[in-house]
Design a protein around this nucleic acid. Structure first.
Lengths: 228, 228
DNA sequence: TTCCATTGCGAGCAGTGTACGCAGTGGCCT
DNA sequence: AGGCCACTGCGTACACTGCTCGCAATGGAA
């Protein structure tokens, strides 16, 4: 199936559309941000738009198209930061900005992970990533590989971060929810190192853990990419 | 909600159950492997098991429980490789094995990314990861951070790999499917570096690209982890 | 002015996860 | 030995999903 961006938005003849792809995408993003991606149904988006459900299909061919539009809408809303010339610093800024966008739109990482997006907004970001690794002595293939490595780590890191965030607030609460199972793990000798880490570590939910995991990981990947 | 592993499988009284959690999980894994995760519905799993739909709820409380069981079933099916003492090599072997399992069960990476799993099988893997980073001079918190970094990259890399695999076989076919949109990108000057890479690179779908992206990324992350 | 491609949309279809309630089973306690 | 009752299997139903069909209304092109 052709991507939605290959199909024209407006028809030559006929009545003026009451809405637009952008308006549909914006409504869907608003719902996903405030109530979660599961709340984004065709009926719900249509209702928020003041339209009938079936009318949405005049603007897109499927719900997958809607997801593509949502991802691209967010990419346009936050354009990539301007390059400074310091490639290493630019890469880190791109990484931090990407993570911030994904945390602001908690549905984004998961949607993007399962559906590669090539809308105009996403392409502008890819252009920035390629600019940041340009001049490092990499050929075209290696540039793509390097950018993929960095972006895949970011996606993985944010997915993990969000999963932890969704599962509870801190280690104590987490242990309480696991109940007897958590106690059994920490006390037993079946998984000695897991038990040790559970007792010693501040826990997977400590305040700045996500921050530090991300910072350490991204710096090490950039070491490799820049040294190349 | 308590995790399913905190709840006992068998009741003291009553008639012998006709099935078991393990059988339900195995049936679901079989369906997901052959027909995709979307084909895994409660009705379908029950039908494959020769049971009524509502009967499944005697073995688990929700579909989320079923997903947890599926992930853990796969983790048990393929236990982590034995450590050799060479920590760097062990980490790489763990990474390669994890990637192989995720490619063999294409639904696994996505499910795991959105739902942290703490079943017995998953814990055994975590134990192996912690063993591999033990003795590197890291404290408990740092060990968790290091393991997270590596695993998150693997998840991200496999998700990307599967997305590319699902979207088409090679660059030519991909360009054909994008139709005029792909041509416009490669020819236009709106995204010069993207256009350049599209023309020069063997493309995101070249045979061994996924292999090389993964190898390069994991080696660079391990550089950072082992160097500490 | 006529034509007809296009829009809006009510109704409906096939599918989903899950709750309810009832019949039947069989281990435990008297 | 007898009966209690926790438990299992499951038919049915509900509220929801993405999506299609068909029809009335619109408005630029001929």
């Amino acid at each position: 199936m052709e991507p939605i961006w290959a199909r024209p938005e407006q028809a030559a003849r006929g009545p003026r559309p009451a809405h637009s792809r952008a308006a549909v995408a914006a409504a869907a993003v608003r719902i996903a941000d405030t109530e979660g991606i599961d709340a984004v149904s065709m009926r719900r988006v249509a209702a928020d738009l003041g339209a009938g459900t079936a009318s949405l299909y005049r603007y897109l061919a499927s719900k997958d198209d809607l997801l593509d539009l949502m991802v691209d809408a967010v990419a346009r809303e936050q354009p990539p930061p301007d390059p400074t010339g310091d490639r290493r610093a630019d890469l880190r800024t791109l990484a931090d900005t990407t993570r911030a966008v994904m945390l602001r739109h908690p549905w984004l990482a998961a949607v993007q992970a399962s559906r590669p997006n090539i809308g105009p907004g996403s392409l502008r970001w890819l252009e920035s990533w390629l600019t940041a690794v340009d001049g490092l002595g990499l050929d075209a293939d290696e540039m793509l590989t390097a950018v993929d490595t960095v972006r895949l780590f970011i996606t993985g890191a944010v997915l993990g971060e969000l999963a932890v965030r969704a599962s509870g607030l801190d280690m104590n609460r987490w242990m309480a929810e696991q109940g007897s199972y958590g106690d059994a793990i920490a006390a037993g000798d079946r998984y000695p190192r897991v038990a040790h880490v559970m007792r010693e570590a501040k826990g997977p939910h400590a305040g700045d853990r996500a921050e530090r995991t991300f910072a350490q990981g991204i710096e090490r990947i950039l070491d490799g990419v820049v040294a190349g």
